[in-house]
């Protein structure tokens, strides 16, 4: 059973210029423990693909399976449950919950999915270097620290699939490197599949596989890619 499977997925949107085809007959598979970097120019459909994989958006055509469950067959509540239980999301803007402190943010999704493991969260906090920041609130953290919390929050729930959308886009290069190191290290250690959307070929090179999107078509799947 693959962590993520997309079969002949297409998606289009209405825009001022008319209907825009964002994804065209796209197929992709990601196994547990694998990491895949998805690159492409702005507007190539990277984020749409990620949103469809997370069940935040629905494909016009094709099948999307996460941990063996077909997303298209699920309603809004089912998709939400799937995200709670099997998907971890990391955003460029971190999207931490501003009203909760770091400790509560770290545990949030795990508790939401009913899989809170305090020891695991403690280990994650230590691995992410967040031990001294647990009582702070998001706005009291730097960008790098916030992104580390976002990664910790996502991994604390032990998801089958992590979807990361430009997780280092708001960070300086050195911090971005450190954050990616942590993310890759932890996903590998936990056996989690990672789909990483990035503009940076240098970061993409550090993943097990790379795929390039051009005008909604998966133009190339490089070494290691499914």
């Amino acid at each position: 059973m693959s962590a993520l499977e997309l079969e002949h997925v297409s998606k289009s949107f209405d825009s001022a210029e008319g209907r825009v085809q964002v994804l065209r007959d796209l197929s992709l598979r990601l196994e547990a423990g694998q990491s895949l970097a998805l690159t492409g120019e702005s507007g190539s459909g990277k984020s749409t693909l990620l949103h469809i994989a997370a069940g935040l958006e629905q494909a016009d055509q094709g099948r999307v399976l996460v941990a063996g469950q077909e997303i298209g067959a699920l309603g809004e509540a089912g998709r939400a449950a799937l995200r709670r239980g099997h998907v971890g999301l990391v955003f460029q803007q971190f999207n931490l919950i501003p009203s909760l402190n770091v400790a509560a943010n770290l545990a949030f999704q795990a508790r939401l999915s009913g899989r809170e493991d305090r020891a695991h969260i403690r280990d994650l906090a230590a691995a992410l270097g967040l031990e001294g920041l647990l009582q702070r609130y998001p706005e009291q953290l730097s960008g790098g620290q916030q992104q580390r919390v976002a990664i910790g929050r996502c991994l604390a729930a032990r998801p089958a699939l992590v979807l990361a959308d430009e997780p280092t886009g708001n960070l300086d290069e050195a911090t971005g490197e450190r954050v990616l190191d942590l993310m890759l290290g932890l996903t590998r250690a936990e056996g989690v599949a990672l789909l990483l959307v990035t503009h940076s070929p240098r970061l993409a090179a550090r993943c097990d596989g790379r795929a390039h999107l051009r005008a909604g078509v998966l133009a190339s799947a490089l070494d290691g890619a499914p």
């Binding site: 509540a77 799937l82 955003f91 999207n95 939401l112």
Partner: peptide, 15 residues
Amino acid sequence: VQLAPLWALGLTPRQ
């Protein structure tokens, strides 16, 4: 902006 992450984390718009 505050609610979107919760939705992404698995709460429905109805909730």
